[in-house]
Design a protein around this nucleic acid. Structure first.
Length: 279
DNA sequence: CCAGTATCCTGCAGGC
DNA sequence: TGCCTGCAGGATACTG
């Protein structure tokens, strides 16, 4: 199984698991050392802000996770898992794996741990009102699971000259799609990754939007049905084996037509695709 | 404004 | 067997 980079489905699965385990529970303490990450990690500041408070809600925006605490509108934790980040749910006393940068102690002996070898992710405290002006959140585009996507994606992509693959990865247009699900959605839609947005009909872009939603929903469903909240032995969340038709499968037969899948590099990202049935 | 590229970081696969 | 190189990619600063 490929070790998947967290995209929207993995973040959503993490959100649902964290919700089941910590929503309504009180935070006892936050532990960790200051660390250079995508944004500086300041465990003591986070501890000062959320110690003793109850978790009220877990939200997702694109690939970002928001953890709200009581009282209402008193600020939130903002997290991004980057490329190698994950939240693990543990019991107090479980062995600590390397690259555990943050530990959130929850009542009833639950611990939430942030593990991120590459440190492209982050967890930071958003002061009350800071959410609206946060530079990362403010730039995010449409939620891909929104019912308006089939109508809006063609409008957003049609004027663009970039390859469709690059447009799918542009978080300011639609937020939450990464390299894996962009590759899968294009394979499903039968669109070659380097075709410019301008050169794709509105109908085909609408179909692409439905493929994006289908592959994301299937991945979430897969995660929801295969993941346990406390998964032995390491408590990892948000990683699961959805069967991928194109991503990483260059050199093997296309599951639809049998033609050998090839790969190309677009914007520094590899894409597997089928010359026969992706036009 | 827009499109394309370099950069951060570590683990690991592949080659010799 | 072991070392070395290069690749993996999300967000963003930077360049053309």
């Amino acid at each position: 199984m490929l070790r998947a980079v967290p995209e929207l489905p993995e973040v959503e699965t993490t959100r649902l698991a964290l919700k089941r385990c910590i929503a309504g529970r009180r935070i006892l303490a936050v532990l960790g050392k200051p660390m250079t990450m995508r944004r500086p990690l300041e465990p003591r500041e986070i501890d000062r802000e959320i110690r003793g408070r109850r978790v009220t809600a877990l939200r997702r925006r694109g690939k970002y996770l928001l953890i709200d605490v009581e009282p209402h509108d008193s600020g939130s934790l903002l997290a991004h898992l980057g490329m190698s980040g994950r939240f693990a749910i543990h019991r107090r006393g479980d062995p600590v794996v390397s690259h555990t940068h943050l530990t959130i102690l929850i009542e009833d002996d639950v611990e939430i741990r942030l593990i991120d070898p590459r440190r492209f992710g982050f967890v930071s405290w958003l002061k009350p009102g800071a959410e609206d002006s946060d530079p990362s959140l403010a730039r995010l585009g449409l939620e891909p699971l929104d019912a308006t996507l089939p109508r809006m994606l063609p409008v957003l992509y049609k004027p663009r000259r970039s390859p469709i693959k690059s447009l799918l990865l542009d978080q300011t247009l639609v937020a939450g799609i990464g390299n894996i699900y962009a590759t899968e959605a294009l394979w499903r839609a039968g669109i070659r990754p380097d075709r410019k947005g301008q050169r794709i009909s509105l109908d085909r872009l609408g179909e692409l939007a439905r493929c994006v939603q289908a592959v994301l929903n299937e991945a979430i469903e897969c995660g929801g049905t295969t993941l346990r909240d406390f998964s032995a032995p390491d408590g990892n969340l948000g990683y699961f084996a959805i069967s991928l038709s194109a991503y990483g499968n260059q050199g093997t037969p296309c599951p639809r037509c049998g033609h050998t899948l090839v790969h190309m590099v677009l914007g520094g990202r590899t894409t597997a695709w089928c010359r026969q049935c992706q036009r």
